[in-house]
Amino acid sequence: MSNKPVQEEGKSILPTWIKGPQDFIGGLALVALALFALWASRDLQGMHGFSFGAGTAPRMFSVLLLGLGAAIAAVGVLSEGAHLAKYHWRGPLFVTLAILSFALTIRPMGMIFAAMTSFLIAACGSAETRWTETVIVGACLTAFCSLLFPYALGLPLQLLPTFLIR
């Protein structure tokens, strides 16, 4: 497996008494999430009599998650575990940008534009990208999707930019 954490000596910012940083951080994040959920559901009605209110189940699950997250963090402190995995920024950044660009352009610009642009943005995510073939494949894929989704599958997708149609 390639996602095994890389041991990086002397680079860890966490104190040494934390033996399993991966679990420790993971558990803490779950605790934070649980606290956030508790805060988000603070206004919901709780139990009245013996029937559940809207907020009962969310709060129940939040508290459960809080406990589990704390337990995972505790395990991370007490037992030897994996170090933090190495993050890469290039892939996640460009894939996210591509998705965002698609979401923002699909309505005003239509599918052909949105698909092609976000294909090119996503392609920046890899250092191995060769531009000529990327552009050709992107164009072919856009053409394929423009036929597949609206025509073959009958989904109501707008192909061209709104300002051209009007």
Partner: peptide, 29 residues
Amino acid sequence: RLMFPSIVIFCSIGIYSVNNAPVDVMLAG
């Protein structure tokens, strides 16, 4: 290098087509 942008696009169109909602695409991201 050619496969992954294709999957990104295909998934994005797929998610968008469920409700025609751009927000769904962002959520998936």
